[in-house]
Amino acid sequence: MTGTRRRIRLLIRKEFLQLRRDPLLLRLLFIMPVMQLVMFGYVVAADVTHLPTAVVDLDRTPVSRQLTSEFAASDYFTVTAHPQSETRLRPLIDSGQAAIAVVVPEGTQAALNRGEQAQVAIVVDGSDSQTASLGSGYATGLIANFNATRLAGSGADAALGSAPGLDARVRVLYNPSLASINTMIPGLVAVILMISIMVIMSQAVVRERESGTLEQMFVTPIRPVEYLVGKVTPYALLAAAQMAVVAAVGLLWFRVPFHGNVLVVLTGLGLFMLTCIGLGLLVSLVSHTRAQAQQAVMFLMLPTMILSGFIFPISSMPAAVQPVTYLIPARFALKVMRGATVKGAGLVDLAPSLLALAGYAVLIFGGAVLATRRRLTE
């Protein structure tokens, strides 16, 4: 028994010594759980707050202005636009400047004064079914409270069905059934593309370095540029084929409607693919073992999945966290995929997201290529 305990102690000591010789892996093991706790603690929430809201006030009366003030004062809504007509709503929603709109038709106060109900339209963007469902619920609840306050102030009985008040009518754009699968599948295409490319590319250089074939390869006349092109091209082609298969399954099996332009989708996914390839290469360069590369990929995946808006709506995140989401390239890829697929948004509407993806592609993929060339020529 004494010999057994001694051998176990020696093995435990050996494992700790190996971990100490691998500082990157050791740091990741301690940082990752803390990062998970902080992110899930702050980001996971059931409420959606500060929804960008457009108010179309066609009545321009004290009642309509008071209703607008109620929406502006609520933590659930942030009034960002006051379009002059309902026809200007769709461009605002397509570009993401508004996620919900309130339309107060002309003659609203006159109808209330006559003791009649007046309809108020609540227009929501169905491309994010969770946000649309919660936002429409908050809006109808706010209008119900507005009715109760107004009737109480006038001395009327709010319980009477004949009491005059505002009647909120919800209208959903792009995804009338609010089926979550219609918004989930386009996002999954981008997420699966990211996961597959980063997992494979993160092993690309480190695997050859571990086996010793990298040094043998550069004894041959091959140049760093040729090595890079030959290394990246097969994975890019595989990713494109995988993306096509996933998209076909989503459209044909799950019956997800496609309302957009194929060129817009391919442009967005192509830029995002370059970004993912660049991230995978950078991980492979800084990692000395495949275990390190796997941990580093998981470390990058965690904020990407949580902060991109794929699982949790960005509008439900704390105000201090929302600016951080602009550092996540997947946020813009999801916006392009959902905007083009569900809304049918075009290049003009999605230009900010496409430009952001282009910037990340140049920065990350270009940086990874330069870093790889430098490492290979050392």
Score class of each variant (00 low, 15 high):
Leu112Phe: 02
Ser136Trp: 04
Leu37Ser: 03
Thr68Glu: 14
Ala330Lys: 09
Gly141Ala: 15
Leu363Asn: 10
Ala132Leu: 04
Gln119Met: 10
Ile197Thr: 15
Val229Ser: 11
Phe146His: 02
Ser287Glu: 08
Ser177Phe: 03
Met305Arg: 07
Gly3Ala: 15
Val56Tyr: 12
Leu238Tyr: 10
Leu238Met: 14
Thr108Phe: 12
Tyr227Arg: 04
Val199Ala: 06
Ala248His: 07
His50Tyr: 13
Ile197Leu: 14
Thr372Glu: 13
Gln295Arg: 08
Arg375Glu: 15
Glu86Gly: 00
Gly187Asn: 09
Thr213Arg: 02
Ile364Asp: 02
Arg9His: 00
Pro164Leu: 07
Ala248Pro: 08
Pro23Asp: 06
Ile195Ala: 02
Ala98Gln: 01
Glu226Ile: 09
Ile197Gln: 08
Leu269Asp: 06
Thr49Ser: 05
Arg150Leu: 10
Ile328Lys: 09
Ala371Pro: 13
Gln242Phe: 04
Ala244Cys: 03
Pro329His: 11
Leu26Gly: 05
Leu112Met: 00
Ser85Trp: 11
Ile364Leu: 05
Val205Asp: 02
Ala158Met: 12
Tyr326Val: 00
Ser287Lys: 14
Arg13Ser: 01
Glu208Ile: 12
Asp349Asn: 05
Leu307Ala: 03
Val348Asn: 13
Ala293Met: 04
Val44Trp: 06
Phe299Gln: 01
Val342Asn: 01
Met337Tyr: 11
Pro52Tyr: 01
Ala248Thr: 13
Leu269Met: 09
Tyr326Ala: 04
Met194Ile: 11
Arg88Thr: 08
Ala244Arg: 03
His50Gln: 15
Ala54Gly: 03
Val44Glu: 04
Leu281Val: 06
Arg65Met: 13
Gln66Ser: 15
Glu70His: 12
Arg21Tyr: 12
Met317Phe: 01
Val43Gln: 04
Gly96Arg: 02
Ala163Phe: 04
Ala361Trp: 00
Ser211Ile: 04
Met298Pro: 06
Tyr360Cys: 06
Leu178Ala: 06
Gln216Leu: 08
Leu355Lys: 08
Ser69Thr: 14
Gly135Asp: 12
Val206Cys: 03
Met305Leu: 15
Thr4Leu: 10
Met194Arg: 14
Ser196Ile: 14
Gln322Val: 00
Ala333Leu: 07
Ser64Thr: 11
Leu327Gln: 07
Thr87His: 12
Leu92Trp: 01
Ala121Val: 01
His288Arg: 15
Trp253Ser: 07
Ala156Gln: 13
Glu378Met: 01
